[in-house]
Design a protein around this nucleic acid. Structure first.
Lengths: 220, 220
DNA sequence: AAGCGCAATATTTTCGAAAATAATATGGAT
DNA sequence: ATCCATATTATTTTCGAAAATATTGCGCTT
């Protein structure tokens, strides 16, 4: 793997885990230390993070971890529901047995994967996050629109940043297992309306929960 | 303006004008000559172009100008219609007089701005393209969703790459003035259905025209 | 004490060359 | 002649330092 890709992973991880909190100034010298490499690959990686919205850039004034706000989260979630609803609906029309199988398999995995205990003050279960992303990706994967899928991907990335709001509080995360189940069932039964409703509720609930339990200091 | 921004403009221009055709391999040494600077800002700029979809990157194998295909154009246009329809509808609900004024003013400008004659074998009217973008941006600007607007922006950028398909043929471009007029009128009359229909037709017509007159050699 | 200009410092951005990787050419075996 | 291994070349990626730009601290005036 190239250095710039390493740097991307390291920094992305640091941001999503909260080691680099929202709004933090990202000095290149510090990042070089963190990633153990020279400035070039670090900058390359920063450019990618800017593209996905995890980092903001100001000309000649460096980079900052994107800041979080309730307004932005609401915008994000509403847009995500709109996009993924469309994509899920189309996937229900177009998806074949392989599509169903991918949903069932990825659902199974997140149900079996217990989330890590919040022993760490900074709790961040990367494994769960990856598998969770797989599940939601599987649902919409057969929508037939490459650009839409790419957009959903960046929306998911930005949304994951907001998960950080709750990961610092005691209880970790609410149990969303049942919601996942409902979505998957409805999708495989080709019940588009039910599936879309369940998906929307899942995202809305998650957002509501995040804002409720949010550590105020993390919101702009 | 920083060097990397200069490089971005120069390369973007070269791609949209067709001087760097779809699929062209982008050697850093050539790009350094083209932009008159070192490799760092060139790479920085390439990263931005990758983010907007005008350029593709392959690890350790450099960069290429994005290639064009009928399938991708259809995906692009369908998605653009879906997104902008939503955004236009919301803008019609939320927009104030300033919104109307911006539409009227930007429409006026593109109507008065005559497109350059196709004397150049490589014809590319940057001025018109900018003003055209302004008009479509104005229509959706009051939708209230930052992420949606950002997405529409990248869709527009990718779409502009496809305009290249017709710019090499004799007649330049069909007259879309009337279509612009219809959209603007309906929007300002707050007739959402009519406005959305006119917008969709405008984009569909443009895509159909592009694919009809396309120089086959440019399509993958 | 508050505001301003200027020097000192910190940081970002860019450069030119070195290292790492991929593409191409060369030569020998079958 | 064709195929494979190896050497050569071309290209991308990374480095460490220099240049450009922004920030901070200090003494001065009002």
């Amino acid at each position: 793997m190239s250095r710039s890709e390493q740097a991307w992973q390291i920094m992305r991880d640091a941001i999503l885990s909260g080691r680099l909190g929202p709004g933090t100034a990202l000095k290149t010298s510090d990042l070089q230390d963190l990633c153990g490499m020279s400035v070039s690959p670090v900058r390359e990686a920063l450019a990618r993070l800017v593209a996905t919205g995890l980092v903001t850039a100001e000309h000649n004034r460096g980079y900052h971890v994107a800041s979080l706000s309730a307004d932005d989260l609401n915008d994000l979630v509403a847009t995500r529901i709109r996009e993924e609803s469309w994509a899920l609906q189309r996937s229900i029309e177009l998806g074949d047995e392989m599509w169903e199988a991918r949903i069932i398999s990825s659902l199974h995995i997140i149900q079996r994967l217990p989330r890590e205990k919040p022993t760490d003050p900074i709790l961040y279960d990367r494994q769960w996050e990856l598998r969770h992303a797989d599940f939601h990706q599987a649902l919409i994967s057969e929508c037939g629109s490459k650009v839409t899928l790419a957009f959903c991907h960046t929306l998911r990335d930005q949304n994951d940043h907001y998960r950080r709001l709750s990961l610092t509080v005691e209880n970790g995360r609410r149990n969303a297992g049942e919601e996942h189940n409902d979505i998957a069932q409805a999708a495989i039964n080709r019940d588009a309306k039910k599936a879309v409703d369940a998906l929307a509720q899942h995202y809305n609930e998650t957002a509501r929960y995040l804002l409720e339990t949010a550590n105020e200091g993390l919101l702009r």
